Structure formats: structure tokens, C-alpha cells
Simulated assay, not measured.
Amino acid sequence: MDITGNTVFIPGATSGIGLALALALRKRGNTVIIGGRRTELLDKIALEHPGVDTVRIDTADPDSIQSAAKDVLARHPELNVLITMAGIMSAEDWHRPETFLDSAERIVTTNLLGPIRLIAAFVEHLQTRPDATIMTVSSGLAFAPLKMTPSYNASKAAIHMLSESLRLQLADTTVRVAELEPPMVQTDLMPGQADSEHAVPLDAYIAEVMSIIETQPETTEIQVEQVKFLRYAEARGDYEQVVAVLNGMAPHGN
């Protein structure tokens, strides 16, 4: 995608990577619409960042997605970029169903069904734009698993393969499919992650992402250097070692 001149909707952008990316894109001359469940956070963002539009959306609720999509397209018919940012992560113990099933269902609903439903709500519109992008958000954990987060790992692996498949299907349209693949970043996604010495500082991560978008506008996978340790473990032939290191040194992942 181009670095500027877009109209971008980012559901799940009231904090963390989503908010930081939204503000960085706004500074580069894009029109940005932030979506989230909590209206008080949306109101605060709109007040602190004039020019950023907001819309309430719960990406775990199909009706909310449809309603928000109608609202966004009515107010911003020039929309040409959708970034499916919303996601949740939880530690799980799969030895007994009562310790993981509820969490697993919530994660799959938010992290996988949410993006699927969002794409369904916008894909026809995006095909009418001369230059459009769907940006999915997977994770380094799509390629090497963190023991404590099975459902999260699986949901992000599914997003990776969904992105690969959509890129093939939409190749005959004006819609590009790009996949953002974060490593562990200093956010509040998991307890303690914001202060982890193993996590990439949020500002540094966003700066590197913006540089990749600017210098490699045709890239299909947006990978900062730190995520490549996980992303290419199998290709390098050191997958088992990478998994061991990941689960030995990093209590949390992104």
C-alpha cells in the first residue's frame, strides 16, 4: 500500500499497535477511522487527536460489524484500506476443558471470525476503489508456538493462511492483501508484556513498520527484523531450537 493519501479503517485501534499505527498513518497524510468497543476511549482519542474519526464496533458481534461498516462507508465512501487489527490473547491450560474452552472460543471468535466478517463487510466496496488494501494482522506466533497460548497461536496461523489464499483469489481485482506480522511488542496484550525486555518498544516497532510500508509498498508480508527469527525458523532448519528459545526466554508473545 502507499504510505499516504489513503482512507483507512482500523477496528481494534483504541490502544497498543492499532492506535500507534493509526496515529502514524494520520501523520503521513491519511484519513484514519478508528474502531473500538468502548465509546469513552473513542471519545478520548477523538478529543486528543483532532481529525481522527471514530466508530463504535465490536468485532465479536456480526451485527455490530455490519452496522459499523454501513456507518463508515456512508461517512467515508472513499475508504480504500481496511486493517483488521482487533485481537485478544490469553494463557490457557489444555489439560482440562474447563480451563481453556471458553477462552479458546472467545479467541477464535475475535481473532479469526472477526477479520473474516470484517472482510466480508468491506470487500465488495474495496473492489470499486482504484487502489485498495486489506491488511490482516497475524503474529510471529503463527510460525512458532508459544506453549502457554495455543488458541492464539492457532488463530494467527489461520490468519496467515487466509491472507495467502485471499491474495490469490483477489489477484484479479484492485485489492492488495498485506499481512502485518508483529513480534512481541511492548503493549498490554498480555500481563507484563508492556515492560518485557524481550519485547520491541512500541514506538520503534511502528517506526520500522512505517519505513517498510514506505520503502516496500508492494510487500505482501510486513516483517520487522525481530520477527524473522520466528517467521523463518522452519525454512532455516532450526525450528526446534527456535521453539525452545521462545518458550524458555519469553513468558509472553504478541
Score class of each variant (00 low, 15 high):
residue 59 T to P: 08
residue 74 A to V: 03
residue 21 L to K: 02
residue 135 M to S: 04
residue 95 H to C: 05
residue 170 L to R: 11
residue 117 R to A: 11
residue 125 H to Q: 11
residue 142 A to Q: 01
residue 203 D to S: 11
residue 80 N to S: 07
residue 21 L to S: 01
residue 61 D to E: 10
residue 39 T to A: 10
residue 217 P to W: 08
residue 96 R to N: 11
residue 176 R to L: 07
residue 114 G to F: 03
residue 101 L to N: 06
residue 241 Q to C: 03
residue 142 A to N: 08
residue 225 E to D: 15
residue 56 R to P: 05
residue 79 L to F: 10
residue 234 E to D: 11
residue 6 N to F: 09
residue 28 R to N: 14
residue 203 D to Y: 00
residue 219 T to V: 15
residue 48 E to S: 14
residue 130 P to R: 08
residue 15 S to R: 14
residue 151 S to F: 00
residue 236 R to H: 12
residue 228 K to N: 12
residue 18 G to V: 14
residue 190 M to V: 13
residue 134 I to G: 11
residue 181 E to S: 06
residue 94 W to K: 06
residue 254 N to K: 01
residue 11 P to R: 06
residue 194 A to M: 02
residue 217 P to F: 01
residue 103 S to Q: 08
residue 133 T to K: 02
residue 198 H to W: 02
residue 209 V to N: 10
residue 216 Q to W: 02
residue 84 T to G: 01
residue 5 G to M: 04
residue 209 V to G: 06
residue 92 E to L: 12
residue 237 G to S: 10
residue 92 E to K: 05
residue 22 A to T: 11
residue 170 L to D: 09
residue 213 I to A: 04
residue 110 T to Y: 04
residue 138 S to M: 07
residue 117 R to L: 13
residue 170 L to T: 12
residue 134 I to F: 10
residue 145 P to R: 07
residue 98 E to Q: 13
residue 240 E to L: 12
residue 164 E to P: 05
residue 75 R to T: 07
residue 12 G to R: 08
residue 54 T to L: 05
residue 20 A to D: 11
residue 82 L to I: 11
residue 147 K to I: 11
residue 153 N to Q: 10
residue 194 A to R: 14
residue 4 T to F: 09
residue 205 Y to A: 07
residue 249 M to W: 00
residue 116 I to L: 15
residue 222 I to H: 01
residue 136 T to E: 02
residue 212 I to D: 04
residue 152 Y to I: 00
residue 195 D to W: 00
residue 167 R to M: 09
residue 65 I to M: 10
